[in-house]
């Protein structure tokens, strides 16, 4: 069975572009594009959730593989 990647949802209307999620991701999954972050390498994501914990604006959500199946 192929590995299912986690899903990272970014709510652009709440994001202020502080770049915490990009800078503190241990796997460099996210990248800045203009003033907003985008998901660049989802295959490296381990769903640790650090970006979600450090986002001050509730703008990023990580849905782990098993949760994504349920949804």
């Amino acid at each position: 069975m192929p590995k299912k990647n986690p899903v990272i949802e970014i709510k652009m209307e709440w994001c202020k572009g502080c770049a915490f999620c990009v800078e503190f991701c241990p796997k460099e999954v996210l990248q800045m594009k203009g003033i907003y972050p985008v998901v660049a390498k989802i295959e490296d994501c381990t769903a640790c959730g650090l970006c979600e914990v450090l986002c001050p604006d509730f703008a990023i959500e990580v849905i782990a593989e098993d949760e994504a199946v349920k949804k």
Binding site: V53, C55, P56
Partner: peptide, 28 residues
């Protein structure tokens, strides 16, 4: 990963704090 919505008044969002303010991290 965590459902924050049940504790929030979502009609008040987005937060008033500046970009890069740590207050939202404490709230979470």
């Amino acid at each position: 990963m965590f459902e924050y919505a049940k504790y929030l008044r979502l009609n008040k969002f987005p937060l008033i704090w500046c970009a890069g303010c740590g207050d939202g991290i404490v709230l979470k």
